Lab assay of single mutants.
Amino acid sequence: MQRVNMIMAESPGLITICLLGYLLSAECTVFLDHENANKILNRPKRYNSGKLEEFVQGNLERECMEEKCSFEEAREVFENTERTTEFWKQYVDGDQCESNPCLNGGSCKDDINSYECWCPFGFEGKNCELDVTCNIKNGRCEQFCKNSADNKVVCSCTEGYRLAENQKSCEPAVPFPCGRVSVSQTSKLTRAETVFPDVDYVNSTEAETILDNITQSTQSFNDFTRVVGGEDAKPGQFPWQVVLNGKVDAFCGGSIVNEKWIVTAAHCVETGVKITVVAGEHNIEETEHTEQKRNVIRIIPHHNYNAAINKYNHDIALLELDEPLVLNSYVTPICIADKEYTNIFLKFGSGYVSGWGRVFHKGRSALVLQYLRVPLVDRATCLRSTKFTIYNNMFCAGFHEGGRDSCQGDSGGPHVTEVEGTSFLTGIISWGEECAMKGKYGIYTKVSRYVNWIKEKTKLT
């Protein structure tokens, strides 16, 4: 034993070699072989497995989906700052455009905790909710729209109204504003409101030439003092309507412009014939205590009207009353817009006519005020429907199939267009061939041609 100890002390290297040989010859039971080890760690190889990531292109799944990435790591994937920024906006807080917040056709661009709407022409605001041009839906104005110097929408209202708090709607500024039905039992019968379409306001006024200088022999019209197929109006439903009495009662109609003036057809009036105007009328054979009678003290036909040349060209006249009318729910003026808007309103496509005229061709006159909704007829169809001249200051309205029309005794009465609950004068009943005849239409004086003249002559002093 002493000898062994001496050998170990003198030859430590020998001992180490012996131990190493023993270990190498022993069977290893701690580690699995290569094949079995792979069965336990069965993990798919990654895209760049075996390579240094710093030297390969980034992978979106590896960089940002398996674990949260930084902007720089995302930049490695896209290799483009702009594309990385677009991805980053949604990656950080989701897609803010998912709810489609942009209105009126706006395009949404996502941002971090926010979004941006790219608005089409005519709109602005956070969600493109603000109209900035009158060309689109009248700028959301209830009545009139004008573009300011910086191309912003400025709404306005006709006389007797003021802008509401929203700067879009119009509200009454006087007790009985024009064009409004205020009798409670008839307010439910107000005709369907007309909503502004998209309009090209630059070209809204037709490029028409008034044929002022045409000389033409007097034409022989049949029954051209021209509501057939209409309905009984309720008291106060058309408070701007008046009836004219002269040699015979209810020979023509008219509309209240203001307390002192009536507008009617020029062919209705004769110099030297006494005319009485009755406002607030409903049943011409009954006294309903809503009527107001006034005498006409002055007749002003349009300066281009000449019955000797043509009885229905420039067929418009103004009547001055001896005493002002007292405005109330049964006696209310009709609204008159400017030339541009009167023309736009007419193009809405349908209007209402009213009167006490004959209820059928050569038949009896109506006792109760009649009204009828009539569609506008395109000019080409209008011209083809008659052998008589249709001037540019006239328009056609009615039904091709016949059966409904204005008729004798309705002449001078109103053709009105309702705009968001307020009625505007767009025409004056003038003439036609018979009444409600198939293929024939009622012919009306186009008020847009005469609004400046009306307003100039009827100013209240």
Rank of each mutant, 00 (worst) to 15 (best):
D131L: 08
E285W: 11
G409I: 09
F121P: 04
L14P: 09
E285F: 10
E171Y: 09
E66P: 06
G403W: 14
G412C: 06
R191D: 09
A250R: 07
I40Y: 13
L325N: 00
H289E: 11
R75T: 14
I309R: 10
E420T: 10
G105L: 03
P177T: 03
C407I: 06
T287M: 13
V4Q: 09
V199Q: 11
Q219I: 10
G427P: 00
G94L: 10
S350P: 11
Q167N: 09
F224K: 15
R162T: 11
R3P: 10
C128Y: 00
L32R: 09
G122M: 04
R373L: 06
I210T: 13
I334N: 00
L369Y: 13
E456C: 07
Y341N: 15
I344G: 10
G236P: 04
G125Q: 00
V326P: 02
K39D: 13
E54S: 10
T381I: 12
Y305F: 07
C157Y: 01
E86V: 15
N59A: 11
F224C: 05
R449E: 11
E320Q: 05
D315V: 01
P120C: 02
S430T: 12
G230P: 10
V263D: 01
N304W: 12
F221C: 07
R364G: 09
P301N: 08
R62M: 10
D315I: 00
N283F: 10
L130W: 07
K455A: 06
W453Q: 00
N166I: 02
C108G: 00
S99G: 10
K126P: 11
I336A: 01
I275W: 06
D150K: 09
I297Q: 07
K339C: 10
P44V: 11
I428S: 01
N393G: 14
E10W: 14
W261E: 00
E420Y: 10
T458V: 05
K247A: 13
T225Y: 15
F176G: 02
C435G: 04
E288V: 06
N245I: 13
V243Q: 07
E433T: 08
C18Y: 04
F144H: 02
A207T: 14
K311T: 06
G236V: 06
F251V: 05
A366F: 09
V195A: 15
G432P: 14
R449A: 15
G439I: 02
P333A: 05
M437H: 10
E82K: 12
V154C: 05
C382V: 02
N213P: 14
Y444F: 14
V228W: 11
A207Y: 13
E286H: 10
C134R: 03
G398P: 03
A173H: 10
L244T: 02
T218S: 13
E86S: 14
V30T: 14
S156H: 09
S169P: 01
K109F: 04
V416P: 01
N48F: 04
Y22S: 10
G280P: 02
A380C: 06
K89E: 05
C268Q: 01
R162L: 09
K311L: 08
H302E: 02
D223T: 13
I40M: 12
Q241C: 05
N113T: 11
K274N: 15
G122F: 03
E323R: 05
Q370P: 03
N452H: 11
S99M: 10
S11T: 12
L103F: 06
C268E: 00
G106L: 00
I17E: 02
A173I: 12
C141M: 00
V368I: 14
